[in-house]
Design a protein around this nucleic acid. Structure first.
Length: 285
DNA sequence: AGCCAGGGTCTGC
DNA sequence: GCAGACCATGGC
């Protein structure tokens, strides 16, 4: 376990003895687009119909205004505490490039996010950049999501989006992706696509199912299965990972790491994006 | 002004 | 099967 003790006080639930966990790395690495930074050590987001403010000071993590029940039922899994990142990093470090990537962001973890909002988020992500993805997701929630508190919105359900017309989505400024969101919502709402079944069906069947949605191709399907269904072997390849593969893995990604390739991918993605341009195969932002 | 962004669709060969 | 145009939008 990547923490040694769990306690509760007036602030909320507190984990101490934290290892392999860096909040800003985890919440600002292009896997989730719904967390807002309050300060360098504090973020607020909405998941599972709950607003959470979470803050980290060195090896202490505070889940503000949270019950032990919610921690055990929701957040423990969401932040992937069931997984042993020490063992994972030991495997990864046998590869020289991954070794450098882990040294750069040792606190990286994969979030286990809800499938529906992961699907929408990565439909929106196509041919787009991270700041704008966050903006579109934020407008989608504040325009169509249930209000939990003033200024705090849930992610809108498939049923809600399925009832909308294309022009209703105009204020979201999703561009050509708006029709893709409608198709996804209608397929889920009317039962043509059963998201829950994708946790257990054969991986290639799951890929195939997701790609029946208009606007969902191989890359988006891979992201949805990795981030929304905890399918760690899924390996999304965008322009950044393409550069990593071309430069560091000309003979292919190591087969021995295939079961966790998606997690390795997240270290590599964060690493390559933060290298100086000339070292990172030339790209900006 | 032109290029790029966690891509995919559609057309024409 | 595969290349190439096209798709909205906003930051640089």
């Amino acid at each position: 376990m990547d923490y040694t003790a769990i306690t509760q006080d007036g602030r909320g639930v507190i984990l101490t003895g934290l290892k392999n966990f860096q909040l800003d790395t985890i919440l600002d690495c292009g896997q989730s687009f719904r967390w807002e930074k309050n300060s360098p050590e504090s973020y607020t987001g909405v998941v599972f119909g709950r607003q959470l403010t979470i803050s980290q000071h060195q090896d202490t993590l505070v889940f503000h205004h949270t019950t032990l029940e919610d921690f055990h039922n929701l957040w423990h899994s969401y932040f992937d505490f069931p997984q042993d990142y020490f063992q994972l990093q030991e495997r990864f470090c046998q590869d020289p490039t991954l070794s450098k990537a882990i040294a750069f962001c040792p606190g990286m973890r994969l979030l286990r996010q809800p499938p529906w909002e992961t699907l929408c988020s990565f439909i929106i992500s196509q041919n787009n950049n991270i700041p704008r993805i966050k903006g579109i997701v934020s407008r989608l929630c504040e325009t169509f999501g249930n209000t939990l508190a003033p200024g705090v919105y849930e992610f809108p359900s498939p049923e809600t989006i399925a009832t909308l017309a294309l022009e209703d989505l105009a204020p979201i400024r999703a561009g050509f992706r708006a029709k893709y969101l409608l198709d996804a919502a209608r397929r889920v709402a009317d039962g043509r696509l059963d998201l829950a079944s994708l946790y257990t069906v054969d991986l290639d069947q799951a890929r195939q199912q997701l790609q029946t949605i208009l606007g969902v191709g191989p890359k988006v399907a891979e992201c949805v299965l990795l981030y929304g269904f905890s399918r760690w072997e899924c390996f999304p390849v965008d322009v950044w990972i393409r550069r990593v593969l071309d430069r560091y893995y000309p003979n292919g990604f190591p087969h021995t790491l295939a079961p966790w390739a998606g997690i390795a991918q997240q270290y590599l993605f964060h690493y390559i994006r933060h290298l100086p341009p000339q070292d990172g195969a030339g790209a900006t932002q």
